[in-house]
Write a protein that binds this DNA or RNA. Structure first.
Lengths: 332, 332
DNA sequence: CTGTTAGCGCGTTCAA
DNA sequence: TTGAACGCGCTAACAG
């Protein structure tokens, strides 16, 4: 496996095949206006030299990089990991590369990274749960083509999970089990995903005057969930709705350590259905957000944009309620 | 926030500032040989036009892309996710971008992706647990600069976790607890990581004739661990050493479902200390592999290579035994 | 200190 | 059908 002798260019191939640069370019790009025999000769020469056209040079002249950028707030979050995985594999199947950028939960970084990565790619897929709507609207203008995940902005293609409906389903599940005092462990206050959940709760409460849903400020990770345990126990609620599975797991762990039985004394429901949700003890009831699918669909939208076609309708996936063992009849 | 009027180039800036292209280039790159007043004028013009030099054009002329590629076998694996996160953040801190490639566990893809991504980046960080040594040796030649994670090849810089010592520590832990019949749930047979564990076991057995360690072919994920449960229970062993935490969790779940008590009837130890290991029930005893740190160190090595310096010594991190509740005294 | 010129490695007109 | 010339946008020689 002789490695490319460092810097073999199209001229080398041309020389070896005894043709001009243009012919090499044409032959290698499958241009039909080139004599088959010649084309063969060129390809042989290229193979012999282990030549491949420089992607960077091609990018410059063609105006496209065959690369898209993905900006996520936290690569440590299982949901974004799944989105990235789905996206990455889908893009790879279409011979596209993926540049990742982790904004480390910083909204400022997010903006900067989006703009910076966009310049070295053909488009940006943006996962920006925190960015205020007006800033998002302004940002996407300079980013096109853009695909949004779990956000919307004007006519920008987007794919999202319906957090609102999913949470409504979870609430209905708890209500059916007899729960009338429920606490909601809120995520980041100004995030869109949190707002969607609050909407669902407001609607539910309006429809079910017999039920009380109290909000407890919390967070988005294990620690936040564990830290909220005392407040949950003090609330007298029979069920807790966690912002996501991470929070639910932290809560699960902490309340059980305090001697509280789940689901006997307290039902706990999560959100996302991360891979580990089924391995908690008890196994976590949650709403399965098809994150990898979201990523794959985001790529599909992006590809359509890149091909100049109309992007498909904004896609909304409905997370499916996944009932496991962390929810049960309300304690009487 | 007026977005770049689509294609503002260095010429536009030059025109607006009333200078030549070179002066703009120099001024914007902080070349000290340019008149401060002029430089200021140029920068104002650039700012007014919202101009930034095209990274693609710069890449072509400078011969570097400010981007590195990371090839991992599976973006769904928590360990590689952590590596990617550590690497991504470290690289970002140095203004480098990261191209990710997921080889989907395919050795062939791995080779192809490594070569393909290398051409659009300044270097490759390779996570190739499966690639046979001779192929790896051949591959890295054409990839330089390369940094290897958990592999070694000639003088190629590498960072790795010492799986061998870590497993030895786990074995010692079990032995101290009185376990004399132990089963090892093996990962992918021909992987380097698995080989390291087998070595540790062989050494241990040689030193402890009183102890029996049987190998059970298994795999690397939940399902594999769960599927191995019957074999583990049938073996009569009092402790199980799982290839990784995923396997341990699958096993934990399955044996407990069969009425086996952990650690009363069976002690279980994992490997990696993925974020969820402390939330299993019982909490998992495991060896904490500092994956994010591994990623960050891999970037450090790569940066040194990129700067033309000597890469630091091959780094070996020792995973730390993290004793939790899934291990206890051997059943008598 | 500044402007002019020559590429970086390709794809793509335009003639021949 | 093929080749010569031009340009993608920029940086770095080379003069002035």
């Amino acid at each position: 496996m002789p490695r490319p002798p460092k810097g073999v260019t199209i001229s080398d191939v041309a020389a070896r095949a005894g043709v001009s640069l243009s012919t090499v370019s044409r032959a290698l790009n499958g241009n039909p206006t080139v004599d088959p025999a010649l084309a063969e000769r060129v390809k042989d020469a290229a193979a012999a030299l282990d030549y491949t056209a420089s992607p960077v040079a091609r990018s410059l002249v063609l105006g496209r990089t065959q690369t898209v950028a993905v900006v996520v707030p936290d690569l440590g979050n299982p949901t974004f990991q799944a989105i990235l995985r789905g996206l990455s594999r889908a893009a790879a199947a279409d011979d596209y590369h993926v540049l990742v950028a982790d904004s480390a939960e910083s909204v400022d970084e997010e903006r900067l990274l989006a703009v910076a990565t966009r310049r070295r790619t053909d488009g940006v897929i943006l996962c920006s749960p925190r960015l205020p709507q007006d800033e998002l609207d302004r940002l996407v203008g300079g980013l096109r083509p853009v695909v949004l995940i779990n956000r919307a902005s004007g006519d920008v293609p987007s794919v999202r999970a319906d957090y609102r409906s999913a949470l409504a389903t979870e609430l209905a599940h708890l209500h059916r089990l007899g729960h009338r005092r429920i606490v909601y462990l809120a995520g980041v206050a100004r995030s869109v995903a949190n707002a969607a959940r609050l909407e669902a709760i407001a609607t539910f409460v309006a429809d079910h005057p017999d039920t009380d849903v109290a909000e407890i400020p919390c967070g988005v990770d294990f620690e936040a969930g564990a830290a909220a345990a005392p407040a949950v126990l003090a609330s007298g609620a029979t069920a807790a709705l966690a912002y996501n599975d991470l929070v639910a797991m932290g809560l699960l762990s902490a309340v059980q350590a305090s001697g509280c039985r789940v689901p006997g004394d307290l039902s706990v429901v999560g959100f996302d259905d991360i891979p580990f949700a089924q391995y908690t003890s008890p196994a976590l009831t949650t709403a399965a957000v098809p994150a990898a699918e979201l990523g794959a669909q985001a790529w599909t939208r992006m590809r359509e944009l890149l091909e100049g076609g109309e992007p498909g309708h904004p896609l909304t996936l409905l997370p499916e309620l996944t009932v496991r063992d962390s929810t049960g009849p309300a304690a009487t």
